[in-house]
């Protein structure tokens, strides 16, 4: 049995080696509706010491999204003492603790769309080998499709140009992990309803209720029948004892999604609360 698993794993590895820069090829052959090249100007680089690329890259993205934070504040929130670096989960929870939304970006097309819409993208890379990793955080701040280059604030270097193919490799070795940071109430250009819901839910679970409410409202402006946003917004209203608001939202939810047992259950609970 173990042999079989090993064989499967090896095949996966070989498949991974045999498919270099597929996303780059797809992007170059048919870019999404974006200008061929775009650079976000006026994004300050945060200089930092070795091991602090996480908080520095996060600060750049947070400040670009309009949140006033310093790299020192964020370092205290994301650096794992003894680990010499920051874990991805810590990065996301730091975004939430500061009342912002972390929305996942999953592929190169999406990444380019976000940059074209004016948002830097925080990326995680492995600059080493798959079996000898060297992890790194950086911000994508531009791209140049005719020259097949990506432009990054990386390390202590501003607007560094790198071939797209190299970038895809190092990004892929870090499992294509990337996110954009947005203010609650806004929506990212490329991400779908679910990605936004997860970010808003993160705020709700971190007890940032007013930020979460803004986030759900923003999702509802873009996806007016979003079940998750309606239920989430109603849950916040309920927690704030605004029962009638909760009822109104859940009525919309049950009408738009008659199959949702959760919407109906919560509607019944909220209606009972109104009567009391």
């Amino acid at each position: 049995m173990k042999k079989f698993l090993l064989a499967g794993w090896l095949t996966l590895q070989i498949a991974a080696c045999a498919s270099p820069a597929r996303q780059t090829e797809q992007l170059l052959s048919g870019p999404p509706g974006v200008p061929p090249a775009h650079v976000l100007t006026g994004i300050p680089l945060i200089k930092h010491e070795a091991g602090y690329c996480g908080p520095a890259a996060l600060t750049i993205a947070m400040q670009a999204a309009g949140k006033e934070v310093t790299a020192a504040d964020l370092a205290a929130q994301v650096i794992t003492p003894g680990g010499a670096g920051s874990l991805q989960m810590d990065m996301i929870s730091a975004v939430r603790r500061n009342g912002m939304m972390a929305v996942a970006v999953e592929n190169l097309n999406q990444l380019v769309e976000e940059v074209a819409s004016g948002r830097p993208v925080l990326v995680f890379q492995n600059l080493g080998l798959s079996w000898l990793p060297r992890w790194h955080y950086a911000d994508v701040v531009g791209y140049d499709l005719p020259r097949q280059e990506i432009i990054m604030h990386s390390g202590n270097e501003a607007y560094r140009r790198e071939p797209l193919r190299y970038f895809e490799r190092s990004w892929g070795l870090a499992d294509f992990w990337a996110l954009v940071i947005i203010k609650p109430g806004e929506v990212a250009q490329s991400a779908d309803e679910l990605a936004h819901l997860k970010a808003a839910l993160g705020l709700e679970q971190a007890k940032m209720l007013s930020e979460a409410a803004f986030a759900y409202d923003g999702i509802l402006r873009r996806w007016p029948e979003s079940l998750g946003a309606l239920v989430g917004r109603a849950n916040i209203a309920y927690q704030k004892t605004e029962y009638q608001t909760a009822v109104n939202l859940l009525r919309v939810a049950s009408k738009a999604h008659p199959d949702s047992i959760i919407a109906r259950h919560n509607l019944a609970v909220a209606e009972q609360a109104v009567l009391k």
Binding site: L194, V231, G232, N266
Partner: peptide, 8 residues
Amino acid sequence: MIPTSAVV
């Protein structure tokens, strides 16, 4: 109320 996480 059932939490939002269940819907998501």
